[in-house]
Amino acid sequence: MPPVNSPISRRPWFPAIRSPWSDIIKFLLVLAALAWLLYRGTKSLGYNWQWHRVSRYILSVKDGKVIFGPLIQGLLVTLRICGWSLVFSFFFGLSTALLRMSDSLVGRGVARSYLELIRNTPLLVQLFFLYFVVAPVLGIDRFTAGVLALSLFEGAYASEIFRAGIASIARGQWEAAHSLGLSTFHTYRYIVLPQAIRYILPPLTSQAVALIKDSALVSTIAIYDLTMQGQVIISETFLTFEIWFTVAAIYLFLTVVLSTMADIIADRLKTGS
């Protein structure tokens, strides 16, 4: 049996209270090292940094009016695509989860085939398939095709999240609801989902973040989202590094805002019960 106060667990050389300054200095050193590497690399390439030319692609002021640059316009398209896709992916996810847990053999079969199909093929191929094959047949535009591809793809993953959340609710809750004469719909609506949402929300947020990132792929079917606008600007101006840095920062901003909002909601739910 190991001694209770083994040297490994005590770590006597480690100071009990650490000054935040040591962490801050380390962090700054890492940043400085990265910046230096970048500087060295770009200098050896002979890259000419022109950050001052970037701002007009975000916002510009003309005759006292604020004009959205192409990057902001792209961002708005990305937001629209993500918003719709989020709604539909929740819809597909929840209905697939419910189908998989239903008594219907056909329902379970359909849900299962959908999941296997979506999770075992690349999103890019699904996007092309929907845009080049399904869209002309059904006569849908590229925006709808993009939203459909994204929401079908993310919905497959969301359904597993919903399923796990629903399965985490104790059987006694179902039995109590049934013994009171509640229908299956009412049991889900009032008993199971309100309790499951607390388990579902954190992984669902990660899924929404993944959706925002994956939405960049719609640029391949010529939708002028944030990524596409970035490519267009670069092909006109050769501001490769500046624009990609900016585009990445905007995506980062979006996902961080989303995660923070989800954290706030999760906190509310926790204190609510």
Binding site: G172, Q173, A176, G181, L182, Y190, Q195, G272, S273
Partner: peptide, 30 residues
């Protein structure tokens, strides 16, 4: 199920609802 009430060993109250909501729920829905 409407005519037969059941009381469980582990109570099985709905934890996210107040006592009022627990008792009101089925009256209102069913």
């Amino acid at each position: 199920r409407k005519e037969v009430g059941m009381v469980f060993q582990l109570f099985n109250l709905f934890p996210h609802m107040t006592v009022l909501e627990n008792v009101n729920l089925a009256q209102m829905l069913v």
